[in-house]
Each structure stands twice: as structure tokens, then as C-alpha cells.
Simulated assay, not measured.
Amino acid sequence: MIKYRFARSLSGILADINTIDGSSRIVANKYHCIGCDQEMVARIGERNAKHFAHRSVENCSPITYLHKLAQQTFMLTYERCLAEKTPFMFTITRPWSCTRHEALTGEPCVGEETVDVDLTQYFKKIEVEKGYKGFVPDILLTSNSGRVLFVEIAVTHTCEPNKIALGEKIIELTIKHEDHIEPIAAAHLRENRVRCHNFEKATRHGDICQAPCDRRLNVFVVYRSGKSILLEASIQEYQRIIARESVLHQEVTGWVRSQSSQISTYKEKVHDAYFKGIRLKNCYLCRYHGAGGIDSAVFCKLKKQDVASNDATTCSSYRPVSNKAEWDRIDTTNQAFAERKYDRALVNRFLPSLGRN
């Protein structure tokens, strides 16, 4: 026999078996199934888990039960919120674009924020299975100005593509078991736990943070010693970097994103700085270098070994390239050198990464 947590009382209220004890069962001793409308009884014995059961064996569909349970819970909860002037919240995410440091980074800082929206402030009317433009949403919310919001209950079937194509906003609630009713009964839905269709959210622009920014910048720094580095720094740390006497040149390359892009960004900035006439020494600029060492970022074709890019500042064999064409020609991977120097198994392990370093 099917065991349900919820049933409908004679007064039309949804009853939760977890709130019923022996005395309340005597007072309200008749319940009906939400799915098939047949009479049910409350089983609250100590042996088995409390549940509602049909008084007689009937063909009741658990799918229909869950669908109607979610539908009626939403309707009753929303109507109560309207009557009592309490909120029915929908927490959504909204993109933002902070322009506070855009002049420094060349791009805004972007992210997402959560916003609580009280649906009862916009939609004052609720109807169940009310036709709208040839479709019948499970629940139709309507504003005073005529805007609508569909609420669809998905137990086994998701929302039809044709209904989505209508273009109206849709909140689709996935209901797989009775516990999924609880957010509806609590009058608080969250976008990350439902499916939303046709929600076009405008990005909030401006000085969003209104506080010291905690995101980190990529800062390319050339020191008077000829060494260079790509640093990750906060806005506050950046201000201290540019105040140092040892710094010859600095450039913010943007917000830090991923480590995989750091080497290519560093090489690009070394190259650009050198051909702009900034005095620096770097193995990436040496005519003996090859891109992609085994253990380090640069492979020295003269020494036939891996080196750090700033080793150029103390290398007596350092010979900088004279033009970009020469740099493009020698800035290649080093498979031939690696095959002669390293064990074949080691080469096979590392070579796929050479082109990325």
C-alpha cells in the first residue's frame, strides 16, 4: 500500500503526517488523497513510520500525487502570503560590472550577486491551470499591469519547448519526492535549485564594491637590474610596487584569471617591453633560447639545459635578438634537443606540454 506524507483535510488544508498525533487524529479523522481524492487514514503507530494510507486499496499514481501536492502547496502558500502581506521570496543571481578600477586594468571587474525578489510585490493574482495564449501553465501569476509568470511542476516531464518559446518567464520546479515541497511551503525559492526560462537579467554597472577591492591584478614589473616578473597583487600591493625605486617599468595586464595563461602573458610583455626600448635582459629574448624547457620555462640551446628566464642578467653568453622576425623564428619548442639529452620515457611524458610553456 502506498504511504504518503501529505493528505487533504475536510477543510481543504494540506495535512502533514509529521504534525499529527493521536488527539488530532480523533478530532480530524477524515482525510483525502491529494492525487486520487480517495479517503485516507493517518497511521501513527509506534511500529512503522507515520504516514497516510488509503482506507482501501486504490490505483493511485504517485506521479499525480506529487504534481498536485506541489501545485496545491504553491497555491495555498502564495494565497496566504498575499492575504497576510508576507513575502514569497525568489532568490536570483544577477550579473554586475564594477568600473571602479577599469581605467587601471582596461576592463571592468565582473561577477554575480544574489538578490531576493518578493514575488507578491509584482504578481497579485494566482490561478491554477488557467489558459493563457493557447497554453495551460500549472500556475499562472499575473501582475496588475498584465505581466505574467508561469510556474511549472516537473515530476517526470520537463517544460515543453513550445511553451518556453512563447517567451514568458517560467519558473520550473523539479519535484521528485515529498521533501522537495518544503521550499514552496517555506515561501522561498532559489534560482540555483530550479530551472528558469526567459529570464533576461540586466547587468548592474557602476562603482559596485564601495570598498577596497580584494581581487588581484597581474602586474608586469621590470627592475633596474634588468630582471622582470609577472606578479599577482592586490590594488593596495600594486600601489606599493610602483613606489619602489628599484622598479624601472610596470604595467597592469588585467585581472588574474588562471595560472595556465601566466607564462604566455609574461612572454608577451617581455617581448613588448624590449621592442619598446625598455632596458631588460631575459632568456626569452636571447638568440640561443627555445620555448618550453622540461623543468623550467626556457631551454637554452647553447648550454643545452633548462634555465630560468631571468638567468640572462648574469649570463656572459647572452645575445639578444635584433628584431621580431628573429625572435619568432627561434621561439620554438625543443624536441630535437630534448630527445638527445633526456631519456625517451621522460621526453614522452613532458613533450605534450612544451608548446604551452
Rank of each mutant, 00 (worst) to 15 (best):
K301I: 03
T253P: 00
Q305P: 01
V270Y: 01
V270E: 04
I278L: 00
S246K: 15
T333H: 01
A273Q: 10
Y223S: 07
V247E: 11
D295V: 04
Q259G: 11
L351Q: 12
I242W: 05
L280G: 09
T313Q: 12
Y266K: 15
S317L: 10
I294T: 11
K276P: 00
S316P: 15
A243C: 10
H249N: 04
E268V: 01
Q262E: 02
A345R: 14
S228G: 11
G292D: 04
K301M: 09
V256I: 07
T332I: 14
E339W: 05
V298E: 04
L217V: 00
D272A: 12
L231K: 14
R240P: 00
S316Y: 01
K281R: 14
Q250E: 06
G290C: 01
F350V: 09
S322C: 08
A297R: 12
R319S: 15
E232C: 08
I242T: 09
Q305K: 13
K324G: 03
S246T: 15
R240W: 03
S228V: 03
R356C: 05
T313P: 13
S264N: 13
I241S: 05
S234V: 02
G226K: 07
I278Y: 02
L346M: 06
L346E: 08
S309G: 03
N218K: 11
I229R: 11
G254L: 01
K304T: 09
G293Y: 01
C315V: 07
L302N: 14
S225T: 14
K303V: 00
K276Y: 06
E251I: 00
V256S: 08
Q305L: 03
C300F: 01
F337N: 14
V307C: 07
I263R: 06
I241D: 01
R216C: 01
E237P: 03
V221D: 06
K276M: 02
G226C: 04
A291F: 03
R279L: 02
S264A: 12
D331A: 15
E268D: 10
E339P: 04
R287S: 14
V247G: 10
L217A: 03
H289E: 07
I263Q: 05
E326L: 12
V247H: 09
N357W: 02
L230I: 10
L351I: 14
V221E: 01
R244Y: 06
Y284A: 13
S261C: 09
G254Q: 11
S296W: 02
S260I: 11
E245M: 11
T265D: 04
K281F: 01
S296H: 08
I235W: 02
L280R: 12
V219A: 07
H271N: 05
I294S: 05
L346I: 07
E237I: 03
K303S: 09
I263Y: 02
S316N: 13
V256L: 08
R344D: 12
